[in-house]
């Protein structure tokens, strides 16, 4: 009886077997890391908007407060988008004939809305309320990043459930004093951990991780 397979087959078969055993965990690893990667979540990617609006110009350069345009944020679930009228308040005079602002002008003239592309889009099965977060000391930049540095707006971190839970479990790491939450560049003075603990006590922050807290 001749040899059917060469000696190298032994190594090949053993490696294939180990590979097959390791394939499951490897696939899990692949899926879990792909699922949270920016390739899937599109974190850090600025979608193409009808108007190339620059937060860097309006917030970083003009010092507009977040609430100048997103004025529902303190009382509503969604922060709200400014109407074309809000834009036209200034742009009726400043850059009043700039070509990129054409969608704003036509929306204003035609009483339509500018169709912005949602940058921070939570899934529909999550209930999120901006007002409670900003009132309890969670700053805009904590989730949306330094928009005052963004020429085009992007969502800097993937808004995965793990990311939500990180803060829901450890609010002391992320809480700011309520009067600072709309600041872009606030830095805690002294021990941030001690401050966080104090704020958690002061604002009575809970650590809500029940399913139905967000998935209502």
């Amino acid at each position: 009886m001749p040899q059917i397979l060469p000696p190298s087959a032994n190594l090949a078969v053993r490696l294939a077997l180990v590979g097959a055993l390791g394939a499951g965990p490897a696939l899990l690893w692949l899926f879990s890391s792909l699922g949270g990667s920016s390739w899937v979540t599109r974190a850090g990617e600025a979608p193409v908007q009808p108007v190339p609006f620059s937060h860097k110009l309006h917030v970083g350069g003009l010092g507009l407060d977040c609430r100048h345009c997103h004025w529902w944020v303190e009382t509503g679930a969604v922060a709200g988008m400014p109407s074309a009228k809000t834009c036209m308040h200034c742009h009726a005079q400043v850059f009043s004939d700039a070509a990129p602002l054409e969608p704003v002008r036509s929306a204003f003239d035609g009483d339509r809305s500018i169709e912005w592309v949602r940058v921070a889009d939570l899934p529909d099965f999550v209930s999120f309320d901006h007002s409670i977060h900003v009132r309890k000391g969670f700053a805009c930049v904590t989730c949306h990043g330094r928009v005052d540095l963004m020429p085009l707006t992007e969502q800097p971190v993937a808004m995965t459930m793990r990311w939500c839970l990180d803060c829901h479990r450890n609010p002391e790491r992320y809480a700011w004093p309520v009067e600072q939450v709309f600041r872009m560049d606030w830095q805690p003075e002294g021990d941030p951990v001690a401050l966080g603990r104090r704020l958690v006590r002061e604002y009575g922050l809970r650590r809500p991780t029940d399913c139905s807290f967000c998935h209502r």
Partner: peptide
């Protein structure tokens, strides 16, 4: 289920 048939505020 990411985008469900119901409308979010300000959705088109």
């Amino acid at each position: 289920m990411y985008d469900q048939p119901r409308l979010e505020p300000m959705e088109r």
